[in-house]
């Protein structure tokens, strides 16, 4: 039996070409189903296949499978979001949403139609941008903190006067104190950064920090944030993000921004 995999809901547009990307199963065409003033972007999939134990297992355990499917999901939504240079108002749907048939889809859209319209109106003319900040040079940052802190300097002097074995414990303890100081200061800096990046945004959110294994970077991520920014402010946002990057480089950090993304972070409260 065939079901519908749902990628996103967008405002209805006339004469926009089909999205030339294969669907989540690598086979099905991506097409739209119009409902009143909105349309659902979907592709056909085999219900048997996606309900199978094999797929269920992969979705639980196989990170590379999850990555491939999640990326396809994202790509389709990206495709549906752009019409030439224009970014369309669109609600991305959470990964893995499958409906039995068209009737079920229409029923769902009907159930919270006003909610959907309201979100589409709110998102219109705004873009999601992502800003991630990394700590490039922790040692440098640590050094700055150590030099400011009198009690740390005093402890270091005291430790120098102890026998080696005893000094060991004090040294280890001091290292811990320093690292706590560093974390505290780090939190402050990140907080200030988050505030100042978000100046142009109408909404902003701090997300989970990812480890190096996932980011593939040497430097640890210290801030993972997303902002919803009005189209007219994007130029300013980029300019200020660039300036901020220069500024924090001196303190041992750097930032990366990317966008426009489908507004994943600013529609996830919508439960249809």
């Amino acid at each position: 039996m065939e079901g519908l995999y749902l990628y996103c809901i967008r405002e209805k547009i006339e004469g926009v070409p089909a999205i030339p990307i294969k669907g989540i199963d690598g086979k099905g065409e991506v097409f739209t189903i119009v409902y009143r003033e909105v349309e659902a972007v979907v592709s056909n999939i085999s219900l048997e296949e996606f309900a199978s134990e094999e797929i269920q297992k992969k979705a639980r355990e196989d990170l590379s499978w999850i990555k491939e499917k999640a990326v396809t999901h994202e790509r389709v939504i990206e495709g549906a979001m752009r019409e030439n240079d224009k970014i369309l108002s669109l609600i991305p749907i959470r990964f893995g949403t499958i409906l039995k048939d068209k009737a079920r889809l229409e029923e769902t859209l009907n159930k919270d139609y006003s909610g959907i319209k309201e979100v589409l109106d709110r998102i219109r003319g705004k873009q999601e941008w992502s800003v991630k900040v990394y700590l490039k040079d922790r040692e440098k940052f640590e050094q700055v903190i150590k030099e400011k802190n009198e009690s740390i300097k005093e402890k270091e002097k005291y430790i120098a006067s102890l026998p080696e074995g005893m000094a060991f414990f004090m040294e280890e303890e001091l290292t811990e104190v320093i690292s706590k100081e560093v974390d505290k200061e780090l939190n402050n800096i990140v907080e200030v950064l988050f505030e100042s990046i978000g100046k142009q945004a109408v909404a902003s959110i701090k997300n989970k920090i990812f480890g190096k294994e996932l980011t593939g970077k040497r430097e640890p991520m210290v801030l993972n944030s997303a902002f919803l920014i009005p189209e007219g402010e994007i130029v300013n946002f980029k300019e200020e993000a660039g300036e901020l990057d220069q500024e924090i480089q001196a303190k041992g950090f750097y930032l990366e921004y990317s966008g426009p993304w489908p507004p994943f972070n600013f529609t996830s409260y919508l439960k249809i």
């Binding site: 609600i91 991305p92 949403t97 769902t108 979100v119 996830s268 919508l270």
Partner: peptide, 10 residues
């Protein structure tokens, strides 16, 4: 970051 935990829920 985006896809797996975000987006509207149906």
């Amino acid at each position: 970051d985006k896809v797996l935990e975000k987006g509207a829920v149906i």
